[in-house]
Computed example of a mutant assay.
Amino acid sequence: MKNNYDFMENIGLHEKLSLQEIPEIDLYMDQVIQLFENKFKETKRTEGEKVLTKTMINNYAKAKVFFPIRNKKYTKRHMILLSLIYQLKGSLSINEIKGILDPLNERIVTDDLAIDWLYETFLKQTDKNAQIFTASVEASIKELTELIGAAEGNDEDTEYYEELLVVASLAHMSQLYKRAAERLADKISENRTNK
């Protein structure tokens, strides 16, 4: 791959919805969808893909993944929860997401919990995660390039082999992270069940 990391530029590595970008006023569903579409457009794989749809939001509401809305409007806390759901949905099912967000939703409803601090902490960690991810991918590519170079010499398909192994390596890492997230989600649910 000759240290070619172009593909890393188009994955939305630093795309996030900051607290400052979330309006203080309540929004209707179409406004929420537009906010997410504008903010996370770089994370889409294809042009026609949607970041968030009415159906998705309605499914989250039916499954009680977030606390009920009032007057068809979504508060800042709803948008924070939707942003978290957006991050979680790639690895966890709606039921698993509901299980880990239930305690937070309960505290929001019963104690009027402000969650800006929690979300800000998450956003800071996503910046660190992006740095760790970039360094890890670059190290993997370098290692695989050296291994392929040593094994194959100057084969005309060397770049293809490198790219194939990088895809396989990234998919493997993705599965490891997904399994770890699933296990922790299970633990949260088990702890709540045992109370």
Rank of each mutant, 00 (worst) to 15 (best):
Y5V: 00
F133T: 11
L184C: 05
T110M: 14
K41P: 15
Y28R: 15
Q34C: 11
T193S: 03
T43D: 15
L144Y: 13
K73A: 06
F133K: 08
S169N: 12
G99K: 03
Y5K: 03
E156C: 02
L13Y: 02
G149Q: 10
D186L: 02
I132Q: 10
V32M: 10
N191W: 04
A168D: 04
K98Q: 09
A180R: 06
E42V: 07
K142V: 03
A135K: 12
R183Y: 07
K195E: 07
L92W: 04
N3S: 12
G153N: 01
F36D: 12
I97T: 00
E96G: 01
E143S: 05
T75L: 04
Y60N: 09
M8C: 01
Y5E: 02
K178E: 14
E49R: 14
N105Q: 14
R107G: 09
K187M: 11
L101F: 10
D186Y: 05
L113M: 14
E138K: 14
V109D: 11
E143L: 01
I33Y: 12
A180C: 04
A168C: 06
P103H: 07
I97A: 00
L184E: 15
K187T: 15
A181F: 07
E49N: 12
I80Y: 09
A171T: 08
L27R: 04
E190M: 10
A150R: 09
P103F: 09
Q87E: 10
